[in-house]
Amino acid sequence: MSSWPDTRLLDLLGIEVPIIQAPMAGATTPAMVIAANEAGALGSLPAATLSIEQLREALTSIRQASQRPINVNFFCHQPPQADEARDRRWKDLLEPYYRELGADFDAPTPVSNRAPFNDAACEVVEAFRPEVVSFHFGLPEKALLDRVKATGAKVLSSATTVEEAVWLEQHGCDAIIAMGIEAGGHRGMFLSDDLNSQIGLMALLPQIVDAVSVPVIAAGGIGDARGIVAALALGACAVQIGTAYLFTPEATVSASHYRALRHAQASETALTNLFTGRPARGIVNRVMRELGAINPAAPAFPGAGGALMPLKAKDEAGFANLWAGQAFGLGRELPARQLTESLASQALKRLSR
Score class of each variant (00 low, 15 high):
residue 244 A to N: 08
residue 244 A to D: 06
residue 245 Y to C: 07
residue 246 L to W: 04
residue 247 F to S: 00
residue 247 F to R: 00
residue 247 F to K: 01
residue 248 T to I: 04
residue 249 P to M: 15
residue 249 P to T: 08
residue 249 P to N: 12
residue 249 P to I: 15
residue 250 E to I: 06
residue 250 E to T: 08
residue 250 E to C: 14
residue 252 T to N: 14
residue 253 V to Y: 12
residue 253 V to C: 10
residue 253 V to G: 07
residue 255 A to P: 04
residue 255 A to W: 04
residue 255 A to V: 12
residue 255 A to Q: 14
residue 256 S to P: 00
residue 256 S to F: 14
residue 256 S to R: 05
residue 258 Y to V: 09
residue 258 Y to S: 10
residue 258 Y to I: 04
residue 259 R to F: 05
residue 259 R to Y: 06
residue 259 R to L: 13
residue 260 A to S: 14
residue 262 R to P: 09
residue 262 R to H: 14
residue 263 H to Q: 15
residue 263 H to V: 14
residue 264 A to L: 07
residue 264 A to T: 04
residue 265 Q to R: 15
residue 265 Q to E: 10
residue 266 A to E: 12
residue 266 A to R: 15
residue 269 T to H: 06
residue 269 T to L: 05
residue 269 T to C: 12
residue 270 A to L: 05
residue 270 A to C: 11
residue 273 N to S: 07
residue 274 L to Y: 07
residue 275 F to K: 03
residue 275 F to A: 05
residue 276 T to R: 08
residue 276 T to A: 13
residue 277 G to K: 04
residue 277 G to F: 12
residue 278 R to K: 14
residue 278 R to A: 12
residue 279 P to Q: 03
residue 279 P to L: 06
residue 279 P to D: 05
residue 280 A to H: 13
residue 280 A to T: 06
residue 280 A to L: 13
residue 281 R to I: 00
residue 282 G to T: 02
residue 282 G to Y: 01
residue 282 G to P: 03
residue 284 V to C: 12
residue 284 V to I: 13
residue 285 N to L: 05
residue 286 R to E: 12
residue 287 V to W: 01
residue 288 M to R: 03
residue 288 M to F: 02
residue 290 E to W: 08
residue 290 E to V: 10
residue 291 L to E: 00
residue 292 G to R: 11
residue 292 G to E: 03
residue 293 A to G: 08
residue 293 A to W: 02
residue 295 N to I: 01
residue 295 N to M: 13
residue 295 N to C: 08
residue 297 A to S: 11
residue 299 P to V: 06
residue 300 A to N: 04
residue 301 F to Y: 13
residue 303 G to H: 09
residue 303 G to N: 10
residue 304 A to F: 08
residue 306 G to F: 13
residue 306 G to T: 06
residue 307 A to C: 11
residue 308 L to D: 00
residue 309 M to I: 15
residue 309 M to V: 14
residue 313 A to I: 06
residue 313 A to P: 02
residue 314 K to V: 15
residue 314 K to Y: 14
residue 314 K to Q: 12
residue 315 D to F: 10
residue 315 D to Q: 08
residue 316 E to L: 06
residue 316 E to T: 11
residue 316 E to C: 11
residue 317 A to R: 01
residue 318 G to H: 09
residue 318 G to Q: 08
residue 319 F to A: 01
residue 320 A to L: 08
residue 321 N to M: 15
residue 321 N to A: 15
residue 322 L to T: 00
residue 322 L to I: 09
residue 323 W to A: 04
residue 323 W to F: 10
residue 324 A to T: 02
residue 324 A to I: 01
residue 325 G to T: 02
residue 325 G to Q: 02
residue 327 A to Q: 01
residue 328 F to L: 10
residue 328 F to A: 07
residue 329 G to I: 02
residue 330 L to F: 09
residue 330 L to D: 02
residue 330 L to M: 11
residue 332 R to V: 13
residue 334 L to D: 01
residue 335 P to D: 07
residue 336 A to L: 08
residue 336 A to E: 05
residue 337 R to S: 03
residue 337 R to W: 04
residue 339 L to V: 09
residue 340 T to M: 07
residue 341 E to W: 07
residue 341 E to K: 11
residue 341 E to G: 09
residue 343 L to H: 04
residue 343 L to W: 01
residue 344 A to R: 05
residue 346 Q to Y: 09
residue 347 A to V: 05
residue 347 A to S: 10
residue 348 L to R: 11
residue 348 L to W: 07
residue 349 K to T: 10
residue 350 R to Q: 11
residue 350 R to V: 06
residue 351 L to A: 11
residue 352 S to K: 13
residue 352 S to R: 14
